[in-house]
């Protein structure tokens, strides 16, 4: 095999790529089209993000309200409201 073949292929490849690239033309309104698409996608991304945050916030609020609603309504041991416990003034060991 000839040792110059890779060199020749390299040269031909460079020429072929240059010729192919030369035929590619950008559309004149490419920037306007692409910019419109960026802005539209960015708006949609922000909207989706906002909706997601709102949904998570609403879910957290609902779960919190449900948990609070499950608390027992009868008077408990800690907050008896009678004021006669041993920790109150007048009932301690030094009294």
């Amino acid at each position: 095999m000839n040792h110059t073949d890779p060199d020749r292929t390299e040269r031909e490849l460079t020429e072929a790529l240059a010729a192919l690239a030369q035929g590619v033309r950008a559309a004149p309104d490419a920037y306007r089209t692409a910019r419109g698409e960026w802005l539209r996608r960015e708006r949609r991304r922000r909207l989706v993000l906002a909706v997601l945050i709102a949904v998570v916030f609403a879910l957290a609020t609902l779960i919190g309200l449900w948990v609070l609603n499950q608390a027992p309504s009868e008077p408990g041991v800690i907050f008896s409201g009678l004021g006669t416990g041993p920790g109150l003034p007048g009932h301690g060991p030094g009294a």
Binding site: T9, E12, L13, E15, A16, L17, A19, L20, Q22, G23, V24
Partner: peptide, 21 residues
């Protein structure tokens, strides 16, 4: 993959090379 419009500018040997690429 290469559009016919772009490939039309190539010579035969170049087209073969691009196809191989």
């Amino acid at each position: 993959v290469v559009s016919a419009e772009s490939a039309a500018l190539l010579r035969d040997d170049q087209r073969v090379l691009i196809d191989a690429l």
